[in-house]
């Protein structure tokens, strides 16, 4: 019990220290463009109260949710296919390895040449960032099935179908879920890059607009809010993961 109390105390101290330093740095007369924590928090509260933050998120989360949902269905399917079949693996593994290594900020403007500046491009940006890790994790989850579990299944005359349904897929479930969580993390990066590089909408609009009218507390509040949203949702997914796949 004291252990968890001790842990909580240190974690709390870490937040206090961080926000304290932020407050100090903001009050230091270096740059007018860097507001202290207190003014950022007030600005955040204002944006929550007048509904502009909620409106922005409704727009931002659309391509994120769409992209992640598409990745969850097609990406996991692809990864499983690659894990189960050598030919699918040879066909598509290079694509995902290249996608994983490619600097996305350089490629995203290319999407706009093809798909314009609408929702499609933003969904694509999310997919291009999130898909590789989702596909690769599903693929590795399938491939890493313990060989003696497969031999066990064969020794009891299990069919290939039973092997996949009763052993390979449950075995991969943990890694697939991890892939989804990491994919969401990449998706957050993708959506912010897309909203800053393609057209400012949603939270990207709040950031660029407030920056252009020099309302820095609001700009920082928008940035801090998406960082917090990403951190909290990923943390919750991680806890869910630990409960489901101990």
């Amino acid at each position: 019990m004291t252990g968890t109390y001790g842990q909580r105390a240190w974690q709390l101290a870490s937040f206090v220290l961080f926000f304290g330093l932020w407050e100090l740095a903001g009050r230091w007369p270096v740059s007018a463009a860097f507001p202290p924590f207190s003014r950022t928090a007030v600005a955040l509260w204002q944006m929550i109260a007048d509904g502009s933050l909620l409106k922005a998120y409704l727009i931002t989360l659309q391509p994120l949710a769409l992209g992640i949902a598409l990745c969850a269905v097609a990406g996991i399917g692809f990864g499983i296919g690659m894990g189960l079949s050598r030919s699918v693996e040879w066909l598509s593994l290079p694509i995902f390895i290249i996608l994983q290594a490619a600097p996305m900020a350089a490629i995203i403007p290319l999407i706009t040449y093809i798909y314009g500046i609408g929702l499609t491009s933003k969904v694509l940006a999310v997919i291009m960032l999130a898909a590789p890790v989702i596909v690769m994790n599903s693929y590795k989850g399938i491939r890493n099935t313990h060989p003696s579990l497969l031999q066990m299944c064969r020794s009891f005359q299990g069919t290939r179908r039973q092997e996949i349904v009763k052993i390979v897929l449950p075995h991969a479930a943990g890694l697939i879920f991890t892939g989804l969580r990491l994919g969401l993390a990449m998706g957050f990066i993708g959506i912010v890059i897309a909203e800053l590089l393609i057209t400012p909408t949603g939270i990207g609009d709040l950031i660029t607009y407030n920056s252009s009218i020099a309302d820095y507390p609001k700009m920082f509040a928008a940035i801090a809010s998406i960082v917090a949203l990403a951190a909290i949702s990923l943390h919750l997914l991680e806890r869910l993961e630990r409960r489901w796949f101990p």
């Binding site: 313990h146 003696s148 579990l149 031999q151 066990m152 064969r154 020794s155 009891f156 005359q157 052993i167 449950p170 075995h171």
Partner: peptide, 19 residues
Amino acid sequence: DGPGPERAFVFQDFALLPW
């Protein structure tokens, strides 16, 4: 030429489903 119902195997690493 393959596994059959008249033979059952006990594995060195147990080969139990962890879930």
